[in-house]
C-alpha cells in the first residue's frame, strides 16, 4: 500500500479503582462510581495502538489514535489519561439515557460511535474491563459492526506491504497456541501479555491539554435512547448481596512441624 497510515480507535473505560472497596447501589444494583481510574487493562490497548502508529511514522505520517469512552461527565477522565499517554484525540459519548447499559446496550452504542467516526481501520480494546469483567463487549462490537474479531491477542502486528492492512495476532489457549490473521478493518482485543504500557510523561501531560475531545450525544450518533441504558438492556440485576468475609482462619508460625500440621488440617477437612 502507498499509504500505510492507520486510523485506530481505542475503547477506554473509566472504572472504580479495585484497590478500594467497591459497592453495588440503587434499584438497578449498579456500581458506585467512586475513586475511579482508567481501566488498567485498557492501557495495553492504548500501547498497542501507539506502537502501531509509531512504527509507521506516527501522527506526522497520517496515523491517528482516537480514544473513545462512554459514560457520565466524569468518564472523560479516561479519555484524558489516554491523551496524556499519547492518543491523538478523544471522543466522549455521554447521555443520561446510557445509564445502566449492559453489554448488549454498550456494544450497540459503541458500534454507533465507530460508525459515526467513519474510516476506522482498527478498533482496539483491552481484554476486559476491571469492573464488569465480562469480556463480552469486544465480541459483541465485532458482531454488530460485521467486522472480523481477533480477541485475547497476546501479540499484534499489522503488515501494510500488500493490497490491504493485514493483522496477525497470537492467542494462547489451554490446549493450543493459535496464530490468527485478518484483513482490516477488524476489532482486536489485547491481553496484558501483549506489551508493556508506557506511563504518561511530563511532555505528554502538557501536550494533552491542547488535544481535542469531541463530546457526542445519542442523538448525534443516531441511537434511540430506548435502545440503550436500563430500558435497552437485555439483562437485569435483581438482587445483590455483599459476600460475607471469610471467617478468620487459623494462622500458625512454622516451628519445624508446620508441614505435618498442614497435613493434619487437610485430613480433618477430608481433603486427602
Amino acid at each position: 500500500m502507498e499509504n500505510t497510515a492507520l486510523n485506530i480507535a481505542v475503547l477506554v473505560k473509566y472504572v472504580p479503582d479495585a484497590q478500594f472497596d467497591r459497592h453495588l447501589t440503587g434499584a438497578g444494583n449498579t456500581l458506585e462510581r467512586a475513586e475511579s481510574i482508567l481501566s488498567e487493562l485498557d492501557e495495553y490497548a492504548i500501547e498497542a495502538a501507539l506502537a502501531l502508529s509509531e512504527a509507521r511514522g506516527g501522527e506526522a505520517a497520517g496515523n491517528k489514535v482516537t480514544a473513545i469512552t462512554m459514560g457520565p461527565a466524569s468518564a472523560v477522565a479516561a479519555v484524558k489519561k489516554a491523551l496524556q499517554i499519547g492518543a491523538t484525540e478523544g471522543v466522549h459519548l455521554s447521555d443520561e439515557a446510557l445509564a445502566g447499559s449492559d453489554a448488549a446496550a454498550t456494544s450497540l452504542a459503541l458500534a454507533a460511535v465507530v460508525r459515526h467516526l467513519g474510516g476506522v481501520d482498527l478498533v482496539l480494546t483491552g481484554m476486559a474491563s476491571t469492573d464488569g469483567e465480562t469480556s463480552l463487549v469486544p465480541a459483541q462490537l465485532a458482531a454488530r459492526l460485521g467486522l472480523p474479531q481477533i480477541t485475547f491477542a497476546s501479540s499484534l502486528e499489522v503488515d501494510s506491504s500488500g493490497e490491504a492492512h493485514v493483522a496477525t495476532a497470537r492467542r494462547d489457549g489451554d490446549i493450543y497456541a493459535e496464530t490468527i490473521q485478518a484483513t482490516l478493518p477488524a476489532v482486536v482485543s489485547v491481553t496484558d501479555q501483549a506489551n508493556s504500557p508506557r506511563y504518561p510523561n511530563f511532555k505528554g501531560i502538557m501536550a494533552a491539554k491542547k488535544k481535542t475531545v469531541t463530546a457526542l450525544t445519542l442523538a448525534e450518533i443516531g441511537v434511540e435512547p430506548a435502545s440503550v441504558g436500563h430500558e435497552g438492556s437485555l439483562t437485569v440485576v435483581k438482587a445483590a448481596e455483599a459476600r460475607e468475609h471469610r471467617p478468620a482462619g487459623t494462622i500458625i508460625t512454622d516451628s519445624g512441624d508446620a508441614g505435618i500440621q498442614l497435613v493434619d488440617f487437610l485430613a480433618a477437612q477430608k481433603l486427602l
Partner: peptide, 27 residues
Amino acid sequence: VFEIADFGIVGDLFDVLPQATAEIKRR
C-alpha cells in the same frame, strides 16, 4: 492472603512443602 486463608502458615515454603509432601506419602 492470610486474611482469606482458612489455614495459614507463616514459614519457608522450601521447608513446609517437602515436609507436607513426605507426610502425605508416609500416611
